[in-house]
C-alpha cells in the first residue's frame, strides 16, 4: 500500500498541489476547494502541505450516518460516495485534522481520494516535497532522517562538543 509522504523542509510554498487537486476535484483552479492545503507560517519560513492521513481508524467513516465513506481496496484511500453522501457535515466535525470538508458548490463532503492511485499533487510538485511511496519505506525514511539528527549529535558528544 502506498501513502502520501510529505517533507515540509522541501516545500517551497508554491501551492501548485492545491491547484492540481482542485482542478481534478472541482474542475476549477480554486485552492479553497482543494483537498490539500499548504499551511504557512511565513515569518518562520515554514510551509506545511496538509491533507488526509487516510487514518486506520477513520472517525469520518464511523460517524457517517449513511456509510458514505469507505476504504478503496486498491489504494487504501477513504473515498466519499457521490451516491450516498448527504452533505450533513458530521464527518467534518469528527475529523481531528480538518482534512475532510464540505464542498459548498457540490453540497457534499470532499477529501483526498489519492486520485485513484495517481495523485496529481505528486505529479505537479516541483521539489519532491510530496511523494507517493510504499508505507514501509516512508516510515523507514523518516526514521533514518530522524536518526541522522541523533547521529550528528552523538558525533558532537563523542568529539567533545562543538569546536
Amino acid at each position: 500500500m502506498k501513502f502520501l509522504a510529505i517533507d515540509s523542509d522541501k516545500c517551497n510554498g508554491c501551492r501548485l498541489c492545491e491547484l492540481a487537486c482542485s482542478l481534478r476535484a472541482a474542475g476549477t483552479m480554486q485552492p479553497a476547494r482543494s483537498r490539500i492545503s499548504v499551511l504557512k507560517w511565513e515569518e518562520r519560513l515554514l510551509n506545511l502541505p496538509f491533507t488526509c492521513f487516510q487514518c486506520e481508524r477513520a472517525l469520518c467513516a464511523e460517524v457517517c450516518p449513511v456509510n458514505a465513506i469507505a476504504r478503496d481496496g486498491a489504494t487504501g484511500a477513504l473515498v466519499v460516495s457521490k451516491e450516498r453522501c448527504l452533505g450533513c457535515g458530521m464527518c467534518t466535525q469528527a475529523c481531528p485534522f480538518g482534512t475532510i470538508a464540505l464542498d459548498r458548490p457540490l453540497g457534499q463532503a470532499s477529501k483526498c481520494d489519492l486520485c485513484g492511485g495517481e495523485p496529481r499533487c505528486v505529479t505537479i510538485c516541483p521539489t519532491g516535497a510530496i511523494t507517493y511511496a510504499p508505507g514501509g519505506r516512508t516510515g523507514l525514511d523518516r526514521r533514518r532522517a530522524g536518526a541522522g539528527k541523533l547521529a550528528s549529535l552523538l558525533q558532537l558528544v563523542e568529539g567533545g562538543g562543538p569546536q
Binding site: 517551497n12 510554498g13 508554491c14 501551492r15 501548485l16 519560513l45 516541483p126 521539489t127
Partner: peptide, 17 residues
C-alpha cells in the same frame, strides 16, 4: 540562505530567504 521560497505556482523558486 535558509530557505528557497516560491511565488505562487512557480516550479523554480528563484527567491531565497
Amino acid at each position: 540562505v535558509v530557505k528557497h521560497l516560491a511565488c505562487f505556482a512557480c516550479p523554480v523558486a528563484c527567491d531565497k530567504a
